[in-house]
Amino acid sequence: YETDHQDYCEVCQQGGEIILCDTCPRAYHMVCLDPDMEKAPEGKWSCPHCEKE
């Protein structure tokens, strides 16, 4: 199925295993987040940009 999420990391602009924000189209590698994540979040997750809003 098609999503509106970007298929690359917002921080480093590379693809790969990325996690998707449930609020906006941004996507991130877990290691590119500050602080980085050990494992993928369970349930709904909002990226740092959305958390600030």
Results as ranks from 00 to 15, higher is better:
Y1I: 15
Y1M: 15
E2G: 13
T3V: 13
T3W: 07
T3A: 03
D4F: 10
D4E: 13
D4K: 15
H5R: 14
Q6E: 04
Q6R: 07
D7M: 10
Y8L: 12
Y8G: 04
C9Y: 00
C9G: 01
E10H: 03
V11C: 13
C12V: 00
C12S: 00
Q13F: 10
Q13H: 08
G15F: 07
G16M: 09
G16E: 14
G16T: 15
G16L: 11
E17V: 09
I18K: 04
I18V: 07
I18W: 06
I19K: 14
L20W: 07
L20T: 12
C21N: 00
C21E: 00
D22Q: 13
D22R: 05
D22W: 06
T23M: 04
C24S: 01
C24N: 03
C24R: 01
C24F: 00
P25Q: 10
P25S: 13
P25F: 13
A27L: 07
A27P: 05
Y28L: 09
Y28F: 11
H29Y: 01
H29R: 02
H29A: 00
H29L: 00
M30D: 05
M30S: 06
M30P: 05
M30F: 06
V31H: 13
C32T: 00
L33H: 04
L33K: 08
D34A: 09
D34G: 12
P35Y: 15
P35N: 11
P35V: 10
D36E: 14
M37V: 13
M37L: 10
M37K: 05
M37A: 09
E38M: 01
K39V: 13
K39S: 06
K39E: 09
A40L: 13
P41K: 11
G43P: 06
G43Q: 09
G43M: 07
G43T: 05
G43E: 14
K44G: 14
K44M: 10
W45T: 13
S46P: 05
S46A: 07
S46D: 07
S46Y: 11
C47I: 00
C47T: 03
C47W: 00
P48W: 02
H49M: 03
H49P: 10
H49R: 10
C50G: 03
C50E: 03
C50L: 02
C50S: 06
E51L: 04
E51Y: 06
E51T: 07
E51H: 03
K52W: 04
K52R: 08
E53R: 10
E53L: 08
